[in-house]
Amino acid sequence: MTLHDLALAVGNSGVGAWMRSNLHAMPVVEATHVLAAATVLGTVLVVDLRLLGFTDRKRAVTVVSREMLGFTWAGFVLAVITGVMMFAANANTYYGNTAFRIKLLLLAAAGLNMAIFNLGALRSVVQWDLQQRTPRAARVAAALSVLLWVSVIFVARWIGFTKGYDFAVPDNVDLDLTIP
């Protein structure tokens, strides 16, 4: 099974059919996706700005991050569920959409950045939990995190403007003549 087969299977699933047949589905699911994305971005930013030493300087890094973690994950899970639902509605179009593909790569990069931070710099957090100035590795991870998550939002919004028009017409083809 190729990735394209998987995409088509999602599109042909009951979820895809339901999304296409229910008039209210798309606006409600999209609005929920925005709310979920806003929660992920905002809560991630709270932690990243603490790591960068801009805000919450007197609060322990672990306190700030533990407080936000539940909201970040709740928002992320909700964003994935609503995202898959939107994908299912137009699977083939999304599959071939460059902005969509870049968004998935950026999401993977954001996840990788978080994993590296968790397995690396964060392991010694007891030593710098209350310090205003965190280790360089932590600051780099936080800066990358801000950059990647903001990019995810930008590229995601771009999908809506390229969907369906994301193809190159060969020079020798006159589109008007191909319409019967």
């Binding site: 994305a37 806003a38 929660t39 971005l41 905002g42 930013l45 709270v46 909201f71």
Partner: peptide, 8 residues
């Protein structure tokens, strides 16, 4: 992006 800031 600003909705994220304001909402949180």
């Amino acid at each position: 992006v600003m909705i994220g800031l304001v909402f949180v």
